[in-house]
Design a protein around this nucleic acid. Sequence first.
RNA 1: GCGCCCUUAGCUCAGUUGGUAGAGCAAUUCAUUUACACUGAAAAGGCCGGGGGUUCGAGUCCCUCAGGGCGCACCA
Length: 705
Amino acid sequence: MTSVPDKFLKPYNPKETEGKIYKKWENSGYFNPDNLPKRHKKPFTIIMPPPNANGSLHVGHAVFVTIEDLLIRYKRMRGYKALWLPGADHAGFETQVVYEKKLEKEGRTRFGMDTQKLYQEILEFTLSNKSFMENQLRQLGASCDWSREKFTLDKDIIETVYETFKQMDKDSLIYRSPKSINWCTKHQTSLSELETISEEKVDPLYYMKYGPFVLATVRPETKFGDTAVAVNPKDKRYKNWIGKEIEFEGLLGPIKLKVIADDYVDPQFGTGVVKITPAHDPNDFEVAKRHNLRAIEVIDQYGKLNEKCGKYAGLKVEEARKIIAKDLMEKGFIEKVEENYKHTVKKCYKCERVLEPRILPQWFIKMKPLAEKAIKSIKKGEIKFYPKHYKKIMLHWLNNIEDWNVSRQIIWGIPIPAWYKDKEIFIGEKSPGADWKKDNDTFDTWFSSGQWPFATLGYPKGSDFKKFYPTQVMETAGEIIFFWVARMIMLGIYRTGKIPFNTVYLHGIVTAKDGKKMSKSKGNVISPLELSAKYGTDALRMALTIGNTPGTTTALYEEKINAYKNFANKLWNVTRFVLSNTSESAKKPKLSKDDKKLLDNLEKTLKIVTRDMENYRFYMAGEKLYHYLWHTFADKIIEESKEILNGDNKNLKNSRSWLLREMFSLQIRALHPFMPFVTEEIWQSLQKKNTLLMIENWPILRNNV
RNA sequence: GCGCCCUUAGCUCAGUUGGUAGAGCAAUUCAUUUACACUGAAAAGGCCGGGGGUUCGAGUCCCUCAGGGCGCACCA
């Protein structure tokens, strides 16, 4: 019999274990694949989705840590050269928004602030969050290689990003031109299509008299920027007007507009006549391009009518609309109003203000050529998706891709390496001469994180790149499949000629028990760090694994976590029983018939569990192990063992004693990726060799699966 | 408008290629100095959203309807 350490006489206390065990792992050096024993040959790599370094880890982060750590630990035990490369994201716009809120609270604002000073402040804020978050990742048990940690603002990462931009310039994949872009009047920056949300809105639709025409519009306040009226070329009603000029009295005096014909106009809608306002409507902008119309800007960057609007100058769009509609009405310029007209507007995904279309020169990436290659790879099955249906979703998006605006008018980010002199453009970090003006914008943060897999591995020269690229699994939130996963695939193929990863595993959102999304305003946010402190990290991880199928939302609530806290304690008590009733002996006795059967049975279970692991069904693997340990091993096998161990038959006793320890040890090993802390702690008492469970063999007894 | 997902026990969810429905939590009854009350045993609980089809056989495949969630694109 082994003497039972005192700690097993008390309930399991995660607090006494976790910090100590994590240090032991970290000091062992085995998080770094280069330090793993010789049997670890074939690389298995996961690049961690770098958390935004602008706050604490939330449950979403806890999910990715749980799943990725589970995978990495499993593969490490199976003898892979397992690399999990951690990182942190400066998260351009996101962080700037967070910081602006902080400034607001302090009664300050970023506007008018010295940009250097603001940048320094945000940098300090980000770096302190970053180190804070690193410790939180440790608390969650992340067995990632800290020696390879990367930050999106590291010098080498920025170099890679610039290299990509220059390469794209050579390949004519980028252009800078004025286009109608999504402008947020609060955040004072343009946004990509993905950073907008479309929402249905009910507004009045005004039928306004425009000389001989009546036309329908929701935005009478933009009329000062009209540069034409358009009809459909096939519309017989207006055929004779095409090409002519109309003249009529407006609110600010006489107006002259050309009548143009364009297929864009739907004869069925309204009256079949449309006013064309190129500066403030993306569709009108396209029409204007086709017809060489000029654009007159009448709304400024703050969403206010400008000096071209006479007495209406200075009014905000919403107010202006009401006042102008009223004035038009009084002058008899409005024929009728359709009050409850439903249409969709685009809003800023952060502040949910209606976006104002504006014409600005921005850097765009031509996405079609990049998407084509990605589509080809995905169709060939070079990238597998879990769950499967995301493949379809991905292809659908790639097939309808638009050019990507990567310019942001914010200071927090990687500066765009471009210089201007008159109409000339130079791309490079350093000024080409005295009269050149620097581009003031920064890159969309996803432009840099889209290059993350090869950038972190030191492409093109780094030895890690050769060893670990393409990586094996990209595990992240389904929410960011287009923002991030799609762009990594496209940019990865573009830069390296190879897909960045073979498998995409997408987890769903974690919600509260009622299925509602957690949000600060609802007050239903639960912190993974608090839960881990209260119930133990292992319990939290089990709660996030079991019942969590890829791609679907999963509810997290304390009762569930508590159930797995009880399970950790069950393991603890089984240890107590096993230690006090068996001993660690080298030689295996001849097993009794019953015992052989029991071992076979466990072996079968472990094989099924292994198959589940290989097929990314962690929720099933975890549940099976849980169930086997508790309701077969503890409730049945241990119970019946008591009689055998207290009986007189020495052979049966020896057989059973060996069996219990063997079976338990196998289960502890299989449970390790799920519950790393408690299993490692138990392992330390279960064997005398002072080895780490972390690098033990995954328990497959005979045939490899 | 196009597309995706979901609907299974009171609650939260599983159910891999079609083979007589599962778990956790909750609720019920019983046990009690037991490795473990952060426990054990037993029982209870479901026309698997409705309808139709394929099949010897459907929670699972196909069609359709209803409800919920989400994505993409939109015409002033």
